[in-house]
Design a protein around this nucleic acid. Structure first.
Length: 270
DNA sequence: ACTGGCACCTGGGCGC
DNA sequence: TGCGCCCAGGTGCCAG
């Protein structure tokens, strides 16, 4: 489910309800996520206050007075703010219980997400080697061009590599490459600086546009208040195999690149 | 250092 | 209705 816009949407949806509140406990119904939720996590964080929430890449960081929760939604994770009387749904694996009676409830059918704790999240091994944030000034065409020298991979998996730039997943990679007019299978090292300038700009625009609309709901993603994201209507190529290109009318093609479905227009993306 | 392939899971949609 | 198959928005790890 979640790429950067969906994670950002989730963060914004839970931030107000959590910030400044005290944690009563963490109720874990299913600890077998991508990595097991540590047994002692609840006692470790009980009684602590939530100072702030941040996003780094696709991780949600819940900063406590001391230490942080590192929370990843995986492919199918979602979060809601509910009260204690709200009925459990299937795959509601974790509740973060607050002293005001509200809960942050985590649902994750496929259990590819994770919930970890670190004293200093940013130096945690999972976060330490991540590339720049796409919406930061550090990320631009010059950076992408330099980073791509000598890389034989296709440009699509290249921009989905979290060591290159974070937050770009399978949907927005296809979208940004379409908007930039670059074929997704093209070798990363064989793209000019000028075209990387356009690509970096389109990555920023497509992510910002998706955040503004609350992300994309294809199957099961929902915002923290239960509403879907509204970016699906804006998708130009993703999931539109054999449908006419919105720019030129040619049929959109579907090709597996780096084990992931990829969509492009053979005319607009030469 | 890079690269491609596999693994981890459940559920929905399809054809038979 | 049931079964088997394929697909799904992520990413760490492995061998080559």
């Amino acid at each position: 489910m979640p790429e950067l816009p969906e994670v950002e949407t989730t963060l914004r949806g839970i931030e107000k309800a959590l910030t400044g509140e005290q944690i009563v406990r963490l109720q874990v119904r299913e600890s077998r996520l991508r990595w097991p939720i540590p047994d002692d996590l609840s006692e470790r964080i009980a009684g602590r206050c939530i100072v702030s929430l941040k996003r780094r890449a696709k991780y949600i960081l819940i900063n406590l007075e001391h230490g942080s929760l590192i929370w990843h939604l995986g492919m199918s994770g979602s979060m809601r703010i509910v009260d204690g009387a709200t009925k459990l749904r299937k795959h509601d694996h974790v509740d973060l219980q607050l002293n005001n009676g509200m809960l942050l409830r985590y649902n994750d059918p496929r259990r590819f997400g994770c919930l970890l704790w670190a004293e200093d999240a940013l130096v945690h091994p999972l976060l330490a080697t991540l590339g720049p944030e796409p919406l930061s000034e550090a990320f631009d065409g010059r950076y992408l061009h330099k980073k791509s020298r000598g890389r034989r991979v296709a440009v699509k998996p290249f921009i989905m590599d979290q060591k290159v730039v974070v937050g770009v997943g399978n949907i927005y990679a296809s979208e940004a490459l379409f908007l930039a007019g670059i074929r997704p299978a093209r070798q990363a090292s064989r793209i000019s600086r000028a075209r990387y300038e356009v690509l970096a700009e389109q990555i920023k625009l497509v992510l910002q546009g998706a955040i503004a609309r609350g992300g994309t709901t294809l199957r099961d993603f929902s915002q923290a208040d239960g509403r879907p994201g509204y970016f699906e209507q804006q998708l130009t190529v993703y999931g539109r195999h054999n449908q006419p290109c919105r720019q030129c009318g040619h049929a959109i093609r579907n090709k597996v690149i780096g084990q992931r479905a990829s969509y492009y227009c053979p005319v607009c993306q030469p």
